[in-house]
């Protein structure tokens, strides 16, 4: 009997136990769970689960190290939207220090840059999936390897959280492809304001499955005027 683990929140699907309250009797094989089954804790799809391999049997992976060569990127040449991000991040930094006046000033700048950012010409959900794929296949492994080499635990923390959140976004987009807007018809959508985790449902978990912050830090997404 295998154990299959959710890479977003750590929930373990134990084949020997099943999930009886959801109709999966004990002994139900992973493959026999319906394709649209999602993690009961965080909503991740089956794609985001990996089999838990016992330590004694774990082979030492001889993968080639990720290709770290990247073209030079100059942190100074930020696009308007990137400058907006920098300003909204510094606004948060001010808020945390109870410097409300400075926070508002940075927020004004963030809003200015956001409104000055050219909208995407032909936005498509498929483009989001592509970029997510690139992040998970290349961007994140490279960054984690580089940060791991120098033991930059702060950067690793941000990378661990953003990888999990990226996986949840991937799960939600793949469900949306199949279920469409019916997915949200009479259901809440919440975003964790600390790590970006997205929860679809009416009863958000008490703690964020990714960053463990209490759920009063979640923000409910209402309809928006675009």
């Amino acid at each position: 009997m295998r154990k299959i683990v959710c890479s977003v929140c750590g929930y373990v699907y134990d084949e020997s136990k099943g999930v009886p309250e959801a109709g999966a009797a004990s002994g139900t094989k992973w493959e026999d769970l319906p394709a649209d089954w999602v993690c009961p804790m965080c909503g991740a799809t089956k794609d985001e689960f990996t089999e838990q391999v016992p330590d004694s049997k774990r082979r030492v992976a001889k993968d080639s190290p990720p290709d770290r060569s990247e073209s030079e990127t100059d942190m100074q040449e930020l696009s308007p939207l990137e400058m907006s991000v920098l300003c909204s991040n510094l606004a948060r930094g001010c808020e945390k220090q109870y410097r409300g006046g400075e926070a508002s000033l940075f927020t004004r700048l963030a809003d200015y840059f956001k409104s000055g950012s050219a909208p995407s010409e032909n936005p498509r959900f498929a483009d989001l999936m592509d970029l997510i794929g690139k992040d998970l296949e290349k961007g994140m492994p490279v960054a984690k390897a580089v940060a791991g080499d120098v033991k930059d635990r702060g950067a690793l923390r941000a990378l661990v959280w953003s990888e999990k959140v990226t996986r949840i976004l991937k799960s939600l987009l793949s469900r949306y492809e199949k279920e469409g807007n019916a997915m949200f018809e009479h259901t809440g959508v919440y975003v964790c304001t600390i790590c970006g985790f997205v929860y679809v449902g009416d009863n958000p978990p008490a703690l964020c499955p990714v960053c463990k912050v209490p759920n009063w830090k979640f923000e409910k997404i209402e309809g928006r005027v675009s």
């Binding site: 991000v85 991040n89 953003s162 976004l169 997915m183 975003v191 985790f197």
Partner: peptide, 18 residues
């Protein structure tokens, strides 16, 4: 709603990364 949530989520991740 999903697009709005994804927009917000990416902003939060970008802030953390920077």
């Amino acid at each position: 709603k999903l697009a709005a949530a994804i927009e917000r989520s990416n902003r939060i991740m970008a802030e953390d990364l920077i």
